[in-house]
C-alpha cells in the first residue's frame, strides 16, 4: 500500500528513505564502534592473546574459587537490589499514576531529581549518612539507642541500600508508564462486577502492569550487575563485585588480560540472563 502512494508520500508518512536513515544513524554507529565495540573487542581479544594464544586467564577464573564467589555475590546483590527496588518502587509508581495535578508533579520530581543528580554525589551522600561519625550513627548515639558507632559503611548492606536508592527510578518509571496506560474504566468495571479494591488490583491492575515490572526489573538487574561507582565507594574490600574487581585489575594491578577475561565473563552472564528474561517475557505476552 505504501508503494502505491509514491515515494514523496512515503517520506512524509514517517518512513525515511534508506540513505537518510543511514546518514542519521551514522554518527552514533561510528561513536559506538570506536568508543565501545572496538575497546571491548580489544579487551576480549587481549584476554586470550597476550601476545600468544593462551587460556591462562580464563582458567584462573575457574580455578580460583574466589572469582566465582565474587560472581555469585554480584548476581545475588543484583537480585536483592532488583527485588527491593520492585517492592519500594511499585507502590510509588501506583500512587503516582493515581494522582493528578500537583501531587503527581511533586512525586515525579522526587523520583526524577535524584535521577538527574550524579551517581557519584548520591553515593557520597550515603557515605555521609553511614560513616562512623555519620548522621545515622550520631543520631542513634545521641538518642542513646547505641553506645558505640555501628559499622554501617563498607558492608554488603550499605552496597545494597545505596544501589537500591540509586537505581530506584529505573524501576519506578517503566512501572508508572505501564500503570498510566491502563484505562481507569477497567478498574471501575472490575468494581462494578463485584471486585473489592484489593481484588480489583490483583486481577486487573497488577497483571496489566507486568510489562512495566519486567522492563524495570531487567533494567535494574542489568545495571546492578555491572555497577561500579556505588559498590566502589560504599562497599569494603570484602564486598568486591565483578565490576569493582575489574576496576582493581585494570587500575591497581594493570592486569589487563585478566580484566578482559572478567569483563568477558560479566558480558556473557549479562547476555545470558537477558536472554532468559526475554524468554520469560515473551512467554508472559503469549498467555
Amino acid at each position: 500500500m505504501a508503494i502505491a502512494t509514491g515515494s514523496e508520500h512515503r517520506s512524509f508518512a514517517g518512513q525515511l528513505s534508506r540513505p537518510v536513515s543511514l546518514a542519521l544513524a551514522l554518527p552514533l554507529v561510528l561513536l559506538l564502534g570506536f568508543a565501545f565495540l572496538l575497546p571491548v573487542a580489544k579487551l576480549l581479544v587481549g584476554s586470550v592473546f597476550a601476545p600468544n594464544a593462551t587460556a591462562e586467564h580464563w582458567v584462573r577464573i575457574v580455578q580460583e574459587p574466589i572469582f566465582l564467589r565474587i560472581l555469585v555475590r554480584t548476581v545475588k546483590t543484583a537480585a536483592i537490589v532488583t527485588v527491593l527496588a520492585f517492592l519500594l518502587g511499585y507502590p510509588v509508581a501506583l500512587v503516582m499514576s493515581r494522582q493528578g495535578g500537583r501531587a503527581a508533579m511533586l512525586i515525579a520530581a522526587c523520583v526524577l531529581i535524584p535521577l538527574w543528580t550524579s551517581v557519584l554525589v548520591r553515593s557520597y551522600a550515603w557515605i555521609v549518612l553511614l560513616q562512623r561519625t555519620g548522621i545515622v550513627n550520631n543520631t542513634l548515639l545521641s538518642w542513646g539507642v547505641i553506645d558505640q558507632p555501628l559499622r554501617l559503611i563498607y558492608t554488603e548492606g550499605a552496597v545494597i541500600v545505596a544501589m537500591t536508592h540509586v537505581l530506584l527510578p529505573y524501576m519506578i518509571l517503566p512501572i508508572f508508564s505501564s500503570l498510566r496506560s491502563i484505562p481507569s474504566e477497567l478498574n471501575r468495571a472490575a468494581r462494578n462486577l463485584g471486585a473489592g479494591p484489593c481484588t480489583s488490583f490483583r486481577t486487573v491492575t497488577l497483571p496489566l502492569s507486568l510489562p512495566g515490572v519486567y522492563a524495570g526489573a531487567i533494567m535494574v538487574f542489568i545495571l546492578s550487575l555491572g555497577f561500579y561507582v556505588t559498590p566502589a565507594l560504599v562497599g569494603g574490600p570484602q564486598n568486591l563485585t565483578i565490576a569493582t574487581l575489574i576496576g582493581q585489575q585494570t587500575i591497581d594491578l594493570l592486569n589487563w588480560p585478566f580484566a578482559g577475561a572478567l569483563a568477558g565473563l560479566l558480558l556473557a552472564v549479562t547476555l545470558g540472563l537477558v536472554a532468559v528474561f526475554r524468554r520469560i517475557l515473551s512467554f508472559g505476552k503469549a498467555m
Binding site: R188, A189, R191, N192, L193, G194, A195, G196, S200
Partner: peptide, 8 residues
C-alpha cells in the same frame, strides 16, 4: 460499587 449488584 462492588456491593451494589448493578450491571454497567
Amino acid at each position: 460499587a462492588n456491593k451494589r449488584g448493578i450491571g454497567m
